[in-house]
Design a protein around this nucleic acid. Structure first.
Lengths: 200, 200
DNA sequence: CTTCACTCCCTATGGAGATAGGTACTATGG
DNA sequence: CCATAGTACCTATCTCCATAGGGAGTGAAG
């Protein structure tokens, strides 16, 4: 159900087509939510049917049209209601930590490869997050810039600080993952000296 | 697909019934993986059909029997193969951070309530994780104790250190969530003074 | 000897999400 | 004017997971 609100959040900055949204979801906004287009298009249709969005046909080339989605008042109300509603708590279900707890069964080289993969992924992700965080602070983040034009200047700080707050958390998470992977690599090295053969 | 390997991981310490597993999943093991019994029973049946497990009927009272599941050689091989296989990367999809990025739309009291809820949840979870981590170090963790009896003493350190490593990461995550929620509460207090009315 | 909490196993339903396609038009660059 | 990349929209299928039940036996307390 969060996809619906992620879409409302994005569209509250400016109207977009499904294609625009899918592009954003695979880029910057993917840091807080991600969805493939095969989920986005049906959800947009459902949201229009439910009155949360209105689609405006826009000419596109000589023969084509595209649908630009605008948030309705009902959509804004639904978004506000969601924002004020209690959190849904997600259970922990991370295959990485499940695997890590049983690495004594793994070949040391396979363990190293996985920890390095984890390290590389989070290092790249961390760089992206830090960059995006900086564009928020600079007010150069494209979606944020569109959003700010809709609000008076005295609201701007408030809006930006919550976004930076969210990214602060994501950056800390990424840093922790990188540090954890480094400790894991050191552990594998240390234990390989002690016992080079896997158990049993 | 990870549920299957979480079950193999648990059953590799000792044979259990589906009910035993469901209990463990809702308690300590839930830290790395969680599943309701309605997923566990069908999966156990499928795993037996696939030859990864064998069920042994055990008398239970005068009229009843229960099925105790044992890992087969094929099951152990599948587990080893999974352990050595590359990681599957999970996309970030956390409704908490999505919401946090748009808290400028929220009523300050609602925002505070949510951040406090997040704080309380992770504080409790952190205490559980730290406790479990300590029982691993002490060798008083019940499942670990069963597991260690299957391996020679010189393997014990290796086994325990990987489990502690996994919990180290989980503990750091929980600490980060608690700290993030505290910063969020401070931010809401600070901004409420600046602008008591929601945007628009 | 009955009530009640617990053990044990299972099914049904529906939403969410991943993956993998398909169709049709546009804009570009050679 | 044609190949190609890109824009735009959509469907099908499958797995995962959550939620909500049902049904039958056990063991201990009153």
């Amino acid at each position: 159900m969060s996809l619906r609100f992620a879409l409302l959040a994005l569209l509250s900055s400016r109207p977009m087509t499904g294609y625009d949204i899918a592009k954003h979801f695979s880029q910057s906004v993917a840091h807080v939510w991600h969805a493939p287009d095969s989920q986005i298009y049906p959800e947009l249709n459902r949201m229009e049917r439910d009155g949360l969005l209105e689609s405006v046909p826009v000419r596109w080339g000589p023969n084509g049209t595209k649908k630009e989605y605008h948030v309705t008042d009902a959509g804004l109300a639904a978004f506000r209601e969601w924002i004020d509603s209690p959190l849904e708590i997600r259970r922990q279900r991370d295959p990485t930590y499940l695997k890590a707890a049983y690495l004594e069964w793994a070949d040391p080289d396979a363990a190293r490869a996985q920890l390095r993969q984890h390290h590389d992924y989070w290092t790249k992700h961390l760089a992206l997050l830090e960059h995006t965080r900086q564009t928020l602070i600079d007010h150069t983040h494209p979606t944020l810039m569109h959003r700010l034009t809709k609000f008076p200047a005295e609201e701007h700080e408030r809006i930006v600080r919550f976004k930076v707050f969210a990214y602060d958390g994501l950056v800390d998470q990424a840093r922790a993952e990188v540090a954890w992977a480094e400790r894991g690599l050191a552990l594998v090295d240390e234990l390989e000296g002690a016992s080079a053969t896997p158990p049993e």
